[in-house]
């Protein structure tokens, strides 16, 4: 199978250079062991990104780290306070609360969203009539973002006398809670909102599914594998780089959850949706403790990096790459 594939591409690339008229023939034969040259080529590709890294990324990172050792109220120059901000964190109840709230959100929202978007992607990858319309309809929720308009809408649907409770009361549930403003349930409304907006993961899965060569399924079908069997033995392994990607990015993004708590629940009731970044934002911009906020950001970076690093470590056991070498 692989020979067929490469032949085709070779044909393509044979035709290519002559059209473009590149003076390839004059080049000496490449020496694949030439490590330095390969590094140089690679850094050529990386130049734009390196410029961004060394200036904007590193610049703002170093400044943030510096600020984390200062007391900085945004309006007057920062004052060096050493490790004070980090020490304060240890005794700050709200810091602990916000960390716990965020972890709960990550643990619930990430896996559910991953499974839901994968299932929808499989459902929507079929080549049937009108599939584009369904995809678009199911993607629309992800396109409306999380603006104040959306917040109002969700408050209405999940409020005391909102749509959900109308339905529940009609089917005989007595006195259902006001979901969005109850300390036990508010965070799950936000989880639900995030699941409702599964579109970006779905699109990535769709692109991934498209990449799986059809002959694999055809061969499996000839061997008598069921649809379910094909899903577990072909789709999942072939899709694993993309699943891995969605898991890593989904986790990072879930840690970053901010807007929903900021505009739908205002962190409440009783701080039940006081997400980490929301608390950080309040400290920085509302309480004028940008130094503390910067210290929180540094801790945040470490926590997220450790979690993401852990996912990377597990990847060699379940992520299957076509290029087989480990990265």
């Amino acid at each position: 199978m692989s020979t067929t594939k490469s032949t085709e591409v070779v044909h393509e690339s044979e035709a290519g250079p002559s059209e473009a008229g590149r003076p390839r023939a004059s080049r000496p034969a490449r020496r694949p062991n030439d490590g330095i040259r390969r590094s140089l080529t690679a850094y050529g590709f990386l130049t734009p990104w390196l410029i961004g890294l060394l200036t904007l990324t590193l610049g703002s990172f170093l400044l943030s780290v510096y600020l984390s050792f200062t007391e900085y109220d945004l309006l007057s120059p920062p004052e060096w306070v050493g490790l004070d901000n980090y020490a304060t964190m240890l005794t700050d109840d709200l810091f602990i609360t916000s960390l716990m709230v965020t972890l709960l959100y990550v643990v619930v929202a990430v896996p559910v969203r991953l499974v839901v978007s994968l299932l929808f992607a499989v459902l929507l990858s079929q080549d049937i009539k009108g599939i584009g319309i369904y995809r678009t309809l199911l993607y629309i929720p992800s396109l409306i973002g999380t603006s104040v308009g959306v917040a109002i809408m969700w408050q209405n649907i999940f409020s005391d006398r909102g749509l959900i409770n109308m339905v529940l009361m009609n089917i005989g549930v007595d006195d259902p809670p006001a979901w969005v403003s109850s300390p036990q349930y508010a965070i799950y409304v936000i989880v639900l909102l995030s699941i409702w907006q599964f579109g970006s993961e779905m699109v990535i899965f769709l692109a991934g599914l498209k990449q799986i060569p059809d002959p694999l399924y055809e061969a499996a079908a000839i061997d008598g594998a069921s649809k379910v069997g094909q899903f577990f033995h072909i789709t999942l392994p072939m899709l694993s780089p993309v699943i891995f990607f969605n898991l890593v990015m989904g986790t990072i993004n879930a840690f970053m959850v901010f807007t929903q708590g900021y505009i739908i629940t205002h962190g409440g009731p009783i701080n039940s949706t006081l997400f980490y970044v929301l608390y950080l934002y309040r400290q920085g911009f509302q309480y004028f403790h940008m130094g503390y906020a910067a210290a929180m950001a540094v801790v945040f970076l470490i926590v997220v990096a450790v979690v993401a690093g852990f996912i990377f470590l597990t990847s060699k056991y379940w992520v299957h790459y076509e290029d087989t070498e480990d990265n």
Binding site: T57, G59, L67, V277, L280, A293, F300, L301, A305, A308
Partner: peptide, 17 residues
């Protein structure tokens, strides 16, 4: 490094940038 660059919340990097 590339991955870590998206782990800093914009709420903090905004002012330096």
């Amino acid at each position: 490094l590339m991955l870590m660059s998206i782990m800093l919340p914009i709420q903090v990097t905004l002012i330096p940038q």
